[in-house]
Amino acid sequence: MNLLNVKVVTVVLLSALLLGVLYCYISQTHRFVSFQLQDLKADSRSAEVHPDSHEFHLVAPEHVRYKQPSITQGRTDVVSVTPWLAPIVWEGTFNPVLLDSIYKPQNISIAATVFAVGKYIMFLKNFLETAEQHFFVGFKVHIYVFTDRPKEVPQVKMATDRQLTVHSVPSSNRWQEISARRMELIQMLIEETVHSNTDYIFCLDVDSQFHGRWGTESLGGLVAVIHPGYYRDDRSRFPYERRPQSRAYVAPGEGDFYYCGGAFGGLMHEVHLLTKTCRFNFEADAKENIEAAWQEESHLNRYMWLNKPSKVLSPEYLWQDFKSRNPEIHIIRFSGVVKNYAEIRPNA
């Protein structure tokens, strides 16, 4: 090989080596930038919107007998699906035997949070006793009670695979602060305690009681409950936060339903994102001296408008005891009890 050929080969090899180094550099830089962009997108999304999540695959065991389903007969007095095709759960729209037979083999576990702060401790015994009778009976349930009066938590006999844990929290002179801190405390509970050993979590008001089944029909990725006070109203009458300065703002002509702050839930990671986002937005508002009209309920409604729930529970799942039952309410499963707010709220 003459000298010229050697030089050509050397130049080719050096060029190939340089191109290889340049390719590796560009590739690694692209990956780094991609990861950064993904992180930025995740951070921005956590404040408003997130992608759909995957739920358990529903597998029915063999030889389970139940009434034949129909697509031409059923409830005609109510709507049982949202415009984004999420089911709305009413009595007569599901088969409890079938659903329980699907979820029971999966050995799922359900957490429930309840806040009994100040004089609200008086409602806890009835809440716990009725939950034993109706809330996910036959499944693993862990109820977490947040209270500033741990010594007054009643002793309630609980069935096998059901347990109660008490978390002490400080009291407050304003019921609005108690309400607002729920998102923060639920977020911390998920991160520190239940994220690794629980499938679903429901967040419920203590001044309520169960009357009928609340079970596997309520399971979903992100679950909301329609407020009984507004489900027949035009959305112009919904008590959304209407000030554009607030991060809970819902503009006139926008919104779907008005959801309860006293009952919501879903898969653990979905509720974690909800509580984290609502807490972030609430605290950001507070720094600007803004408090949403209905505290965490306002922020929850903003969140649920953008992040559509995958399942919506009808007003059966949080009725109001002072209201007479409307014809479409065939059963009351859970309800807020009658009370005198002036007696139980520190600044009512």
Rank of each mutant, 00 (worst) to 15 (best):
H227M: 06
L222I: 05
I290N: 10
L222R: 15
Q295Y: 03
G229R: 02
G212K: 10
D205I: 03
V225M: 12
G220R: 08
A284S: 15
Y231A: 00
L313R: 11
Q295C: 04
E254T: 01
G253S: 08
S236A: 14
R237N: 08
K311W: 06
Y249C: 00
W305E: 11
Y317C: 06
L219M: 13
A248L: 04
Q209L: 05
G221W: 10
Y231I: 00
S298M: 04
F264D: 06
F282V: 00
P327D: 08
H272K: 14
E270G: 03
G265L: 01
E297G: 07
G262V: 00
I290Y: 12
E283C: 07
Y240P: 03
T216K: 00
Y259Q: 12
F257S: 01
N281V: 07
F280W: 14
Y303K: 05
T275M: 11
R247S: 13
Q245P: 00
W319D: 02
E296N: 02
S314H: 06
E316K: 01
K287Y: 14
R213E: 12
Y249H: 12
I290R: 12
A263G: 12
I290D: 13
K287V: 10
K276P: 00
L222P: 13
L267C: 03
Y231C: 01
V271C: 13
L222T: 09
F210I: 07
N301I: 01
Q320N: 14
G220D: 12
W214Y: 12
A248W: 03
L300I: 15
S246D: 01
E291R: 13
D207P: 00
L267F: 07
Y317W: 00
L273I: 04
G215I: 10
E296Q: 03
F264P: 04
G253H: 09
F322A: 13
L204P: 03
A251G: 14
H211D: 08
Q295D: 08
M268P: 07
F238W: 04
R242F: 14
S298G: 04
G262M: 08
N281H: 05
G266C: 04
V271L: 15
G266Y: 05
W319S: 01
R235T: 09
C278T: 08
Y317V: 06
H272E: 14
V312K: 11
M304Q: 08
L267N: 03
L300Y: 10
I290A: 11
K323V: 00
D285W: 11
P239H: 01
S314G: 08
R243P: 04
M304L: 15
Y230M: 04
C203K: 02
C260S: 09
S208W: 03
E217T: 01
S310E: 08
F210K: 12
H299A: 10
Y258W: 10
S324K: 09
L222M: 13
R232K: 14
G221H: 14
